[in-house]
Amino acid sequence: MRKFVYLMAVVLGFTGILVIGLFIRYRNQAMQLDAGTDNLKTYRKHYLFVSSDESQMLRDIYEKTASACERSGVWLEWCGKDTPGEYTASQCIDLSIAMKADGMIVYPDGSEDLAGAIERAFGQGIPVVTILRDIPDSDRVSYVGVSNYQVGDLYGGQLLSLLHNGSNEVCLLTDAGDSENETQLLYTQMVQAIKNGAPSGRTMELRTESVDSRTDFDAEEVIRDVLLGKERPDILICLNSAQTECAIQALIDYNLVGEVQVIGYYVTDQILQALRQELIPVTMTIDTDALGEDSVQALNEYLELGRVSSYYNITLSGITPVTAARYQQKEKEAVSDGEEAG
């Protein structure tokens, strides 16, 4: 009897401890919902990423830049994203000034008074770094991107491999956000490259079509008009991922695969698939890791030293159906490495 009583006391004691433990656990779980900011990681700086373009390429660039910021103890925020209002880059810069951000990484969208906004930011002590599109006559402290000389040469080289005998119609899709000077430079370099390298009997007529990527559905409409127009180009050159995806879809929709060669820009899942299916011969891509890393480094350097290199070059490379599989493998490895590191 006495053993039974002791056994019962032990069992009940154990159960009691268990129940009290569970009780405390649930209670703490409830309390944690109201936890303050004490346990959160703090950051030494607050940078804003300014881009009205929310395409896959910019999203990737933002991700890479955010990773670089995280590594250097900086909180990166995409200005105006997820807010009900739609802001131009210029407005975002004003917004960032009002937010008293420590620095800005801006993807210029060709909006008015962008240089003025950059100047205002600079006047408030907020350095601005532009990426992919430069505004050389502004107060931006540095530009991180590709050189249009290089881009022109690279595109020219790709064109040479795609030209057939006789006259070739080539259409270059420009973006409303691209500055005229930059576009002109690109155009010139491409023409020069063809002139220098084209074999006899192969000529090229290059024209440009402007696409306003800030306006909804504009890219798809322009590309459809180009492909179904009287002067259908033999080669279509895209300068961003949205244009490339629209062009690929149009090739499929209007059964133009093989008739129109599309030189794409950037690598998305759809573009990569098109490459592997050989719907397009080549796509140009940038090193987003380097872009993110360099832009953050430029801001950090300026804030710490008060000066920084005005230009960080990012390499542009072409991916063909042959190299697509290798590229995909490398990306997968990079993603898995990132997850393990995370």
Binding site: T37, K41, H46, W75, E77
Partner: peptide
Amino acid sequence: NVGNELLM
């Protein structure tokens, strides 16, 4: 500057 979007 803390690592929480709402607080930011």
